[in-house]
Design a protein around this nucleic acid. Sequence first.
RNA 1: GUGGCUAUAGUGUAAUGGCAACACAGGACCCUGUGAAGGUCUUAUUACGGGUUCAAAUCCCGUUAGUCACCCCA
Length: 428
Amino acid sequence: MAKLKFQTPTGMHDILPEDQLYYQKVFDTAKKLFDYYGYSRIETPILESTDLFVRSVGENTDIVEKEMYSFKTKGGDMVVLRPEGTAPVMRAYFQNGMVSMPQPVKLWYYGPFFRYERPQAGRYRQFHQFGAEVIGDSDPLFDMQTIVILYNILEDLKIKNLIVRINSIGDETCRGEYKKALSKFLRNKKNDLCRDCQKRSKTNILRVLDCKEPKCREIISQAPQTMDYLCESCKNHLKEVLEYLEELKIPYILDPFLVRGLDYYTKTVFEVETQDNEGGRQESLAGGGRYDILGKAIAGEAVPACGMAVGVERIVQKMRDNNVDVSTKRSAEVFLAQIGPIAKKRGMVIMEEFRRANMKVAECFNKDSLKYQLAKANKLGINNVVIIGQKEAIQNIAIIRNMETGKQSEIPQEDIVKEIKKRIKEEN
RNA sequence: GUGGCUAUAGUGUAAUGGCAACACAGGACCCUGUGAAGGUCUUAUUACGGGUUCAAAUCCCGUUAGUCACCCCA
């Protein structure tokens, strides 16, 4: 390949016309389901104040520590390319006075997000997520509903072998108890933990549970479980969510070691993955949970809320693996061929007439050779071709050529749309 | 941040250290108002920089980029 001076930055990609089919399908499917469940779409800026994420996602999380595109504006403000969607939506909720709307407020979003990481399969620096947030209600019904919507969207997109991994990490009070217990448990085992976990046990102890190092895994398997430390209300909350899931026959596994990389979660946390037999690649396609303390971090006001987010690139990858049909292309019904400048002008006018009749037209106005234009029509598999040359333009007539039979007939220009419509109808 | 692998036309692929080849796509023409065919031509300093060698796409080193995995996540 010839050396190109410019290309996309690391981990970022052009979404080409053939890719758009997949992205469009994901968007449309999500929109359809969110509409059905009464969620309204919201768009927040790509840039947000750096502090919004530091305060909400958490200082000692990977996202904030090493994955944010953060910079200073000319005015001296610290801003970031948003790394996730929940905090901005919550910010918008407060900023736009949604507190005084009927609760809960159900919102969904779709857009690009940015994390500075080493790219790999299904993992990019600019990627797309769609997600939903239910703000202002603590009912476990909504924990369940976000999972159900998520599940339904993925199923509609023909993603197979879906499984929900779910856990509860407690609320402000009982999580504290648990952290203490875990800390106590790990205290005399510190030297056996990996280096990362030694650091984590100081800064963000829950994340030790998430470690994949075998020696850490072994220790963790003996560790106290969040489940045993849940307070009464958290326990009931989890129980209800699980009951709902069973009722709706959503396959799930209760994973006592599931914790998430963001600090704002409380109670329910979950991830959705597919269990594909080959390769063993098991990325989570989506994740979410309840975040009753996020409001306090953002606006000083506790508002119960929960939500979920889905990685579009990962979905698209799965759709490709599964050969999901995404062709929505509406092929042109008629080809407009012209020869000469006068005919070209007439062609433009006729194209508009077709558009008003809601018929799709293919053309090659940039080529003057009729030979080329017919070859193009042939390649596109279009049977009806309207030909207008110098002579026809002047006489106000047009030739209609049937590509299959090769038969041609002349008709007045004002009848073109009508005649083509008639022919297409006869063909079907 | 750590490690593995890769880099040849627009795309996909060939080439025991010895002439850079093929398919598709694109463009031009044979053929300036009529498509399925055929033919001719065209589209590459083998990512970049250095080294070994009579000779490098091929071996070695470096750079860059891509890719996969770890970490973490969507």
